[in-house]
């Protein structure tokens, strides 16, 4: 049986963001959280695999205890099991620390054939973890795939790579990063919601992993966020008065200044 993991993240819904004026930190209370939109395509791929192959699907996330609700939602969609990696000592992990912790988690879990991720998260939008985890587990990461099939321990697919379209063969285990709109994520069926709440979520914490000291995300992350600011774009807000012709003339001049020229094709 194929052991398929989908790596997701719970993120704040982007319109409910507020910043504490005195500390400059993001206010995390009373924020509506959702499954990172790109991860829905990864979940859908896992559910599709389950329909065609003998596969056991597991959704995994790393985050605070409330990230459990994202896992429950994935279970309601039809994912078989869930793992929550959570510990106060993992808080404030940057991408490197996150990768190191997830690597330890997979070494603890031992069996995995396919790890599926979305493209990037809507909160920090780094897109780094799939590449770093591929490096950490020393398994190939395949991105931008189209057709695929699995035969025994081999994964065959067509992928875009640079300016080429390639047919490739690669031995499991592998990681797959799914692009946006790769498929059409399904809705949560009502029956699924009840089932989702009956499932037990496996918790992995600092002690489970018998963590080496360097996995302390609070203190060992190489990058530090020193300031957070609400971004208010500075714009001139200059109103251009005049007739339609004069206003159009103004636009033409700005276009010209930016290298957009009238293309003469001859007289």
């Amino acid at each position: 049986m194929l052991e398929v993991y989908v790596l997701i993240k719970q993120v704040p819904k982007s319109h409910s963001l507020r910043i504490d004026k005195s500390s400059g930190a993001l206010i995390r209370e009373n924020i509506e959280n959702i499954i990172n939109p790109d991860d829905l395509y990864a979940l859908e791929l896992a559910l599709t695999l389950k329909e065609s192959y003998d596969a056991h699907t597991v959704v995994m996330t790393m985050g605070p205890p409330q990230a459990e609700s994202a896992l429950r939602e994935a279970l309601a969609m039809g994912i078989d099991d869930a793992v929550l990696i959570s510990d106060p000592q993992f808080a404030y992990s940057d991408t490197l620390q996150t990768t190191l912790v997830i690597k330890e988690a997979f070494e603890y879990l031992k069996r995995y054939d396919l790890l599926i991720t979305g493209s990037e998260t809507s909160d920090s939008s780094t897109g780094q973890v799939p590449y770093q985890l591929s490096e950490a587990l020393d398994i190939p990461l395949i991105t931008d795939i189209f057709e695929y099939k699995i035969e025994g321990r081999n994964f065959y697919c067509q992928r875009n790579f640079g300016h080429e379209s390639q047919n490739i063969q690669v031995e499991l285990p592998i990681m797959l990063r799914v692009r946006r709109h790769f498929n059409k994520p399904r809705h949560v069926p009502l029956l699924g919601i009840k089932k989702a709440f009956e499932k037990k979520i496996k918790i992995i914490d600092f002690n489970t992993l018998n963590c080496p000291d360097y996995l302390d995300g609070c203190n060992k992350s190489p990058t530090i966020v020193v300031k957070t600011e609400k971004f208010i774009p500075k714009r001139k807000n200059q109103f251009i008065e005049g007739t339609i012709k004069e206003q159009a003339e103004f636009i033409k001049n700005v276009m010209k200044e930016n290298g957009i020229e009238r293309q003469w094709t001859g007289i």
């Binding site: 982007s14 963001l17 809507s122 939008s125 020193v226 300031k227 957070t228 609400k230 971004f231």
Partner: peptide, 20 residues
């Protein structure tokens, strides 16, 4: 000192890498 957009550009964060 780097300046990076987050949350779809609604927020900018300043990030350093002090010791590595």
């Amino acid at each position: 000192l780097t300046d990076k957009p987050a949350y779809g550009g609604n927020i900018h964060v300043k990030i350093t890498c002090p010791s590595k």
